[in-house]
Computed example of a mutant assay.
Amino acid sequence: MSTVASDSPVPGTPGAPSPARRRRRRRVRALIAAAVAIMVLLCAVVGGIGWYFAGVATQVDHSDEYPLTVADVANGTVTLPRETSTERPGTWALAWKGGRALLGPVVSRDGDHVVRKVASVTQGTLTKGTHANIDHWVWGDDPKKSLGLDFQNVTYQSKLGPMPAWLVPGGPTQGTSTKGTWVIGVHGRNADKLETMRAMRAVHALGLPMLSIAYRNDVGAPPSPDRKNHLGDTEWNEVVSAMGYARAHGATGVVLYGWSMGGAMVMTALRKDPSFVRGVVLDSPVMDWNATLDKQGSARSLPPFLTDVAKHVLQWRIGIDLSDYDQRRYAPKLRTPVLLYTAKDDGTVANGPAFTFARTAPPGMVTHVKADGGHTEAWNVDPAAYERALTTFLKTVG
């Protein structure tokens, strides 16, 4: 009996996809393309926001703003909108384009306005409707015109060329000497030598010369190659150059005195060249750029992840390592006495790192003065208390 095997079935040729399957494939491809486009767009938006805020941080800007409108001027008083800055006690100036007045105490206030005494009008004419601002630098001219202190316009050599500075020689106890310990004043970001003038009388009264310096990108100073602010990461070189100028002109040591970003600069200069530094004074200093940029991002309602992106962009754009500006890392090894002023209502710089720095430094190395007021306004709120602490410290290290 024979058996005939049946032929195996020949596989059929696959047919074309059904219309429904083709539609599904097109939808999937479209969804993938849309998702990729959205991701690219989000990355561009996030990167753009990061680029913008990094640009804000590095922008060089010396323009003036006058957000207040004078409501009235009468009988030796000025009426201003009621704000924290306009009703705060202490020593302040009212500045406007082409003019300046020293303000006295508040004499009255209501829900919308505050009335202050005008101690003197030092420049221009103050009239109703003038656009002005509260200036915590107080003085707007050189040390001779503003404070009656003799000074010299000098230049010190830096890597970028000659930098301008004011040299106020030693005062009553040393005549006009430039010998001994010098104080080197270093203003903050986008500020000016004028910021340092609030300390000059106290320094001068002790007979210590004071060198208030301009640095790269200041008005009248050489610009940086990229014309950007580097948050102190390159600007500290000018502090070291100023120390060299002081040494060459009779200084036997220096006290570095930094306001705001100037504080970050002098702390870096201290780490680079500590041998000539007798002491450091810090007024509302940046003691950690990461924390300060976080604070400023929060004030602009920037989500934390966008702030982080901005910080990464910032580090890439100007070549800074922000972690190098966390002074808490160096506090345990501090060997130079520091006088530290922090302002209770500082809306610009994060205070927490300064408190930690003071707490973790070796015992007795940091004298921490906690003051009222806003950023770099400890002197304005209570000049006498500020100068007592400064005078005591300088007598110790000068």
Rank of each mutant, 00 (worst) to 15 (best):
F151Y: 15
L206T: 08
M39K: 00
W92Q: 10
S212V: 12
S8P: 15
F355R: 03
R271D: 11
K311M: 15
A251R: 06
V10C: 11
P162Y: 03
N190Q: 13
S284N: 02
R328A: 10
T122H: 04
I49F: 08
P222N: 10
T69E: 14
A264W: 05
S18W: 01
R109E: 14
S275K: 14
L340V: 09
W259S: 03
S8L: 15
A132W: 01
Y245H: 13
F357R: 05
A310T: 06
P383H: 09
T84H: 06
K193V: 13
L206D: 07
S241P: 08
L194I: 12
A221H: 07
A358H: 02
P285N: 07
P353Q: 07
G250Q: 09
A389K: 11
I320S: 02
R82W: 00
G98I: 10
N75H: 11
V118P: 06
W316M: 10
A378N: 12
N153Y: 10
A57C: 07
A350H: 06
V46I: 15
V203S: 00
V397P: 01
A101G: 10
D324Y: 05
G161N: 09
E83K: 13
T391M: 05
T292W: 00
R189M: 13
A35E: 01
M265Q: 15
